[in-house]
């Protein structure tokens, strides 16, 4: 399975009622990549945390792309106007993300990249 042909992109409004769509899509993506049920659960905690950060801001829309391969998923969060995705983060957000994913990357255009890889 190659990343190139296996990218799912959602363009989502930052509204509380859509967190379910985000969590279920995340579960589907991680399940497809072959992760166990605990890692699928961790991934849902991660996307909910990022989504909550967005809810704390005036950002109205964002993109999330899941690049899926066996044993690896890359999640890329991107806002319009290059707003920092984690602008609404609290004291737990960054350490929580770092504890639950393999790699956390930020770029200067507000994009947040989370990589989860099977050990």
């Amino acid at each position: 399975m190659d990343f190139e042909d296996n990218v799912i992109t959602l363009n989502m409004p930052v509204k509380k009622e859509y967190s379910q769509i985000l969590r279920l899509t995340t579960a589907g993506a991680f399940n497809q990549a072959g992760f166990d049920i605990n890692t699928v659960g961790d991934a849902k905690v991660v996307v909910s945390e990022v989504f909550n950060c967005l809810l704390n801001t005036d950002i109205v829309q964002f993109d999330i792309a899941f690049s899926i391969a066996i044993g690896k998923v890359i999640m890329e969060f991107k806002t319009y106007d290059d707003d920092d995705v984690l602008r609404g983060a609290n004291e737990f957000t960054r350490p929580l993300l770092e504890a639950l994913v393999t790699k956390v990357e930020f770029n200067n255009k507000g994009k947040l990249i989370l990589v989860v890889e099977a050990v």
Binding site: N38, E91, F92, E98, L100
Partner: peptide, 18 residues
């Protein structure tokens, strides 16, 4: 900050429990 230090420790223990 203590929360920065404690968060990975607590999450690590919860994950271990799972």
């Amino acid at each position: 900050k203590f929360s920065t230090f404690a968060t990975p420790t607590i999450i690590g223990e919860i994950k271990k429990y799972f």
